[in-house]
Design a protein around this nucleic acid. Sequence first.
DNA 1: GTACAACCTCTAGCGACTAGAGGTTCAAGG
DNA 2: CCTTGAACCTCTAGTCGCTAGAGGTTGTAC
Lengths: 134, 134
Amino acid sequence: MNYGIGEASRATGIKVPTIRYYEGVGLLSPPTRSEGKQRRYQPADIARLNFIRHARDLGFEIGDIRELLTLSTRPDQSCDQVDVITRRHLSDVERRIAQLSALRVELLRMVNECTHGRIYECRVIESIQEAGGA
Amino acid sequence: MNYGIGEASRATGIKVPTIRYYEGVGLLSPPTRSEGKQRRYQPADIARLNFIRHARDLGFEIGDIRELLTLSTRPDQSCDQVDVITRRHLSDVERRIAQLSALRVELLRMVNECTHGRIYECRVIESIQEAGGA
DNA sequence: GTACAACCTCTAGCGACTAGAGGTTCAAGG
DNA sequence: CCTTGAACCTCTAGTCGCTAGAGGTTGTAC
């Protein structure tokens, strides 16, 4: 049994154009084609797409996923590299959380100072004019 | 006194090509030019650029900044719209923090389960294969 | 007058898709 | 067998907020 691209899409939750995009950037090798040159996917392709989707859900970028996919096909190698990629991504996520949290504090301060008057006395506008965050 | 684009850049911390970009997207109206058609900025332009920079530092997107700039030139209007824009941005920031925090928990769980063995028993790879976050 | 930094415009690239045009193939029903 | 229409195909361009580079011009200091 094989899948058309639409079935693959429904099976994985990845949109049809995105599947083609993944093929284009080399995450997925070109599948076999029907006589009329339409893509036909095998269960292994579906598994690979699911892997990609889960990794994207976890925020890994395409380059990392490419590497993780390669590593996952070398079961005997040490998983150190997997660990490195994951930790690097984790610290990236933590850095972004920190940045956004600082922003949040600043924005909260601004909206809390708002007295709902006229623009000329608007504390939000003043905050942006005077200094700004980060 | 007026400023060349390089001076404007140093005065505001916005890179030269970015200043031209802001002009292109209509955040900044085209300045006067020298005889040789080079841009000459006035102090009011510098103030506007500083406003833009601070707003960008606070994470506002270009469209929002355009609106905030327009509003800031209408001192008699109510600042309700400013409040709306700011609160909308704030909740966007909070949404992103929540997403990233969930991601962080998942990634932490994954790296903590890592036993530094071989790929075939790698818990990180397994996590991605099995389910994935979000 | 000449050197050279600073400026100019224009195009293309980043990441990860998404949208649309314009054409072809597949599967089901008559 | 034939037609309908959904699903498929390729290709290009757009999103966002810049950034980089090519190739040419202007401003300023000596």
